[in-house]
Amino acid sequence: MNAFDALTWLGRWPFAFLAERNAADLARHLKAHGIARALVSPLDAAFAPEPGPSNRALFRAVRGVSALEAVPVINPALPDWRDQLQDCLDRAPVRLVRILPSYHRVALTGPAMAECVAMCRQQGVKLAIQVRLIDERHEHHAVSIRPPKVAVLARFLDAFPNEPVLLSGLLRTEAATLAAGRPQVRVDLAFVEWLETLRTTLAAVPARQVVFASHTPFLETAAAPAKFARARITPAAKRALLSGNLERFLSA
């Protein structure tokens, strides 16, 4: 299958019995499901006081594991976010950084995000907005975390119409709404599902805006390639969704 996965994680998650793998194990696990390469982010950053230590651990973990490309987490709600980003750029080649607005209470339409977008542009780094990590109905009872509203995401995207953004963890209808008329947006397939997921999705979202994602270890890895195995879309579209679109997005 030779997929390029837009969304995987290394680290610990306190609220579910997720598989804990090191980088080499994750790469092997993904390869067994036809995923040749993957973007990987540090899970511990979701609840850590600041993401620096998790990012540094991630860079150390993926060193020498060519199938995994580090995507650090930046928290623009903290006063040192510029240092967080610069520290990552100083340590390794970074093509994408991930923002967790729900978990870090990041105001997507606030001044810090505007500055973050500008700094990423200057540094040649793309942005990924993690809309949800898990189904909000299944969050731990002691926490109250909800994904950003679609209208807020739309306002953010429309404020930066020329900035390429990857939206991760959208549901089917959210993906259709947010991708429509916004060619700068890419949406990943991790949570997108309906009967004949790919045909349904491509009826609503231009194929060039859709990328493969397994969301390992949160979701069953086998489910992501399963969407493609018997999908009735053209081989060219399949190739683009599996790897080409993400590579072009990162390289542009």
Binding site: E193, L195, T197, E220, K227, A229
Partner: peptide, 17 residues
Amino acid sequence: DAPIRDFAVAIARITGA
């Protein structure tokens, strides 16, 4: 739960477990 869900994904929940 199809069509809300995809048969392929639903089966993979089992075969991937």
